[in-house]
């Protein structure tokens, strides 16, 4: 599921119309509609992503998932990851290793759980 579909599903769950979301975020309604139907990429601007998450009142983990999905759809690293990459020399090697393994999302989750437990 891409960012647009996730956004729409969370908005409808909250019985929020496009107008409600546009008014609460001050983002153009036609733009939100295009993002939701995935004819354009999600916003890259972290402030916009935060504004949307805030308007939807998303709990921490869901908010992070939305931002991560926006980054994936934009073929970018999430802003916090990108910041850490710049600071940590071994990061590209680690990511390349993981990337070359072509792991499924389940295996990736397993790996991150392992790292969380171990480190």
């Amino acid at each position: 599921m891409g960012y647009g579909e996730m956004l729409r599903s969370k908005r409808i769950e909250r019985e929020m119309t496009l107008r409600d979301l546009s008014s609460r975020t001050d983002i153009d309604v036609a733009y939100i509609s295009r993002v939701e139907r995935e004819t354009i990429n999600p916003p890259q601007d972290e402030e916009l992503l935060e504004a949307i998450n805030g308007a939807l009142n998303l709990p921490g983990q869901q908010s992070q998932e939305m931002k991560d999905q926006a980054a994936v759809d934009n073929r970018r690293f999430p802003a916090d990851v990108a910041r850490n990459m710049a600071k940590t020399a071994g990061f590209p090697l680690f990511l390349r290793t993981v990337s070359n393994k072509n792991l499924t999302p389940e295996k990736l989750k397993e790996l991150s759980d392992f790292i969380n437990e171990r480190y």
């Binding site: 019985e15 119309t17 496009l18 509609s33 139907r37």
Partner: peptide, 12 residues
């Protein structure tokens, strides 16, 4: 919201 739920999304 009803339209979305029954599979006919509203697009602006």
């Amino acid at each position: 919201i009803l339209a979305h739920r029954v599979g006919h999304p509203v697009e602006v």
